Simulated scan of single mutants.
Amino acid sequence: MLIYLYDGTFEGLLTVIFEIYERKAAPAQIVCRKAELPGLFTQTIPVITDEAKADRVWIGLGKKISAAARSQLYKAFLSEQPQTAMLIYQYAQLTFASAVSIEDNFAADCVRELAQINKQVFRESHRMEAFIRFQKTADDLFYATIVPDFNVLPLISEHFRKRYADQRWLIYDTARHYGLYYDLEKVSQINLDKEIADRSGNLPANILEEQEHLYQKLWQTYFHHVNIPERKNRKLHLRHMPLRYWKYLTEKQPQ
């Protein structure tokens, strides 16, 4: 078994694809270095991320498929599912071998499976845009905690930069231990030495803005008053707002 090891970044994966073609040695698996390696009878090839090589693969794909198709490859990569790296390699292999675009060739397993993964990632990013709830701190920072199924922070960054352009905000993914910070000019990726929110995403009371608890109670009151008990449909409600998101929603906290 020939296994290529990479650093877990998208550029790293593109570098692996370049190395596979350069070495003319097809992989049995493509594995992030942090993952557990399968079996004893394996040959591993560590690949160091090279932006120039990654760019050549990315540009090469752009000559064969649309910008939307390339974007979908990146979104599928953000799923962090272990099979995705091999699927993207197989997709690239099929792309470079075909005289026509393969992006609608759903008879190919890699095309069909990546499309399904892409839909899951898109759905999760859309829910994050809808379900994120900020808390205002005493120094006028709007803070939110998330634990999405997939690594969707890169996908929601532009949405929040445009929507809250006049506010400083920080959205922190506690599952992946990094966040996005907007300083009124640009969005930067940051890592906190110590996570400041509890398991439900609540900040300590001593760092919250003085009126924050009042605003939270007002929002809860509004939510409960617009709710019509006679029209209650829990099954439909859970379909649109799954239970796993509730602990981060202000309106779902006990009053």
Rank of each mutant, 00 (worst) to 15 (best):
I3P: 02
F10A: 06
L14T: 04
T15Q: 04
T15H: 00
Y21N: 13
R23M: 15
A28M: 10
A28R: 11
A28H: 10
Q29I: 09
C32M: 11
R33A: 11
K34D: 13
A35N: 14
E36G: 10
L37A: 03
P38C: 03
G39W: 06
L40I: 09
F41T: 12
Q43G: 10
T44M: 04
V47R: 09
V47D: 12
I48R: 14
T49I: 06
E51N: 15
E51H: 15
K53D: 01
A54C: 10
D55N: 07
R56H: 09
R56D: 07
V57S: 08
V57W: 02
G60K: 03
K63S: 13
K64L: 02
I65Y: 07
I65M: 14
A67V: 14
A69I: 01
Q72T: 07
Q72M: 15
Q72V: 03
K75F: 06
F77H: 00
F77P: 02
L78I: 00
L78Q: 03
S79Q: 01
S79T: 01
E80L: 14
Q83A: 11
A85E: 10
M86P: 00
M86Q: 07
I88A: 04
I88Q: 02
F96P: 03
F96G: 04
S101M: 03
D104N: 09
D104M: 03
F106K: 04
A107Y: 01
A107G: 07
C110D: 02
C110P: 01
A115D: 07
K119Y: 11
K119I: 09
F122G: 02
E124Q: 07
R127W: 13
R127C: 11
R127D: 08
F131E: 06
I132Y: 02
I132K: 02
I132G: 00
Q135I: 05
T137Y: 10
A138E: 13
A138G: 08
D140F: 09
V147D: 13
P148S: 08
D149L: 14
D149F: 12
F150M: 02
F150A: 08
P154L: 08
F160K: 00
K162S: 14
K162L: 14
Y164N: 03
R168A: 11
R168L: 09
I171L: 01
D173E: 00
T174Y: 03
A175L: 12
A175T: 12
R176D: 02
R176L: 05
R176F: 03
Y182S: 08
Y182L: 08
D183R: 00
L184I: 07
L184K: 12
L184V: 08
L184C: 07
E185S: 11
E185W: 05
Q189I: 11
I190Y: 06
R199M: 09
G201C: 04
A205R: 13
N206P: 03
N206S: 13
I207L: 12
L208S: 01
E209C: 10
E210P: 01
Q211H: 10
L214E: 11
L218V: 14
Q220V: 06
T221Y: 13
F223H: 15
H224N: 15
H225V: 10
V226R: 14
N227Q: 14
N227G: 14
I228T: 13
K232R: 15
N233H: 03
R234F: 11
H237Q: 15
R239M: 11
R239N: 12
M241V: 15
L243N: 04
W246A: 10
K247Y: 06
K247R: 15
Y248L: 06
Y248M: 05
L249W: 04
